[in-house]
C-alpha cells in the first residue's frame, strides 16, 4: 500500500515537472538543430544558429535596446520605490494606506491596457513612439513591485539604528547614505534585479510604444511571422538563460538577507 502511494506521488511530481519543462527543453534542444526547422527530428547538434543570431544586426540592436531599457527603467524604479518606501515606513504619514494602494494599483491592470493608455496619451500630446516611452511604461508596471519589496524590507529595528546614528550626530543625508542604504542593500538589489528581469522580458508595452527601434521580445515576435526557425530558439534560449542567471543572483541575495534577519 505504502509503496503504491509513494510510486503514485513520485509519478505525479515527475509528470508535472515534465509538463513544466517540456517547452523549455524543446526550445533549448532545437536551438542547436543542425537544419532549418526547429521541430523533430533532431538532425545533429550545431552552434550555427547562435552564429547567425549574433550576426543578425537587427537582433543584436534589439538586444542592446532591451538591456538599455531594462537598466534605465530598473534604476528609476529602484530609486523612486526606495524613497517612497522610506517616506512611508519612517514617517507613517496620514493616509499611508491610500498612498500604498495608489502606488500598488498598476499591478491590477493588464499590461495591454497600460500600454494602450500610454500610447493614446502620448500620441494625443504629439510625442512619437520611442524606447524612452517603453522605459516610462516599464517603470509604471515595475514600480509597484520595487516599492512593495523595499517596503517589506523596512522595519522598526532599522529605525532604531537610524535614530542611534542621528543621536551620534549624523545629518539626514549621512543617515541615509551611510546607514539606511547599506543596511537595505540586499533588498535594493533584489528590487533592481526583479525590475530589470521583468522589463527585459516585457512584450506588449514595448510593442505598443516602439516603432523602428524595438526591444528583443518585439523583434522575436516579428521573427515569428516568418515561421518557426532555430534562430528564434537561439534568441529565446539566450533570453531564458540571462533571466535565470539574474533570478539566481536575486534569490541568493534575498536568502542571505532573510537569513541575516532571522538570527
Amino acid at each position: 500500500m505504502r509503496r503504491i502511494g509513494t510510486l503514485l506521488r513520485t509519478t505525479y511530481v515527475l509528470v508535472v515537472f515534465g509538463f513544466i519543462f517540456l517547452p523549455v527543453v524543446v526550445l533549448i534542444v532545437f536551438s542547436f538543430q543542425d537544419g532549418a526547422v526547429s521541430v523533430p527530428p533532431l538532425r545533429g547538434l550545431s552552434l550555427r544558429w547562435y552564429g547567425e543570431l549574433f550576426a543578425d544586426g537587427r537582433m543584436m540592436a534589439a538586444l542592446r535596446n532591451s538591456v538599455l531599457v531594462a537598466v534605465v527603467s530598473a534604476i528609476i524604479c529602484t530609486v523612486l520605490g526606495f524613497i517612497a518606501a522610506y517616506g512611508l515606513a519612517r514617517y507613517r504619514p496620514r493616509g499611508a494606506a491610500a498612498l500604498r494602494a495608489l502606488l500598488i494599483a498598476p499591478l491590477g491592470v493588464s499590461y495591454l491596457v497600460i500600454g494602450l493608455g500610454l500610447s493614446l496619451g502620448f500620441s494625443e500630446l504629439g510625442i512619437g513612439r520611442s524606447l524612452m516611452l517603453v522605459i516610462i511604461g516599464h517603470v509604471v508596471i515595475n514600480l509597484p513591485l520595487a516599492f512593495a519589496i523595499l517596503l517589506s524590507q523596512m522595519n522598526e529595528d532599522q529605525e532604531q539604528i537610524e535614530r542611534a546614528a542621528r543621536d551620534l550626530g549624523a545629518g539626514e543625508f549621512h543617515v541615509i547614505t551611510k546607514v539606511t542604504v547599506p543596511m537595505l542593500l540586499p533588498g535594493i538589489l533584489a528590487a533592481f534585479l526583479l525590475s530589470f528581469t521583468l522589463s527585459w522580458d516585457e512584450f506588449v508595452i514595448a510593442l505598443l510604444l516602439t516603432r523602428f527601434d524595438v526591444t528583443l521580445p518585439v523583434e522575436i515576435w516579428s521573427a515569428l511571422r516568418t515561421g518557426l526557425n532555430p534562430k528564434t530558439n537561439a534568441a529565446g534560449t539566450i533570453v531564458f538563460v540571462l533571466s535565470v542567471s539574474l533570478l539566481f543572483v536575486t534569490y541568493w541575495i534575498s536568502r542571505r538577507r532573510i537569513g541575516g534577519q532571522r538570527r
Partner: peptide, 28 residues
Amino acid sequence: KSTRKGWALSGPALLWTSLFFLAPMGFV
C-alpha cells in the same frame, strides 16, 4: 510634520504613477 515629509518623499513615485498611469487610464 511627519505626514508632510512622508508624502514629500513619496512624491516622485506618486507623480510618476499619476502622470503615467492614472492620467492615461483616465484618458482611456
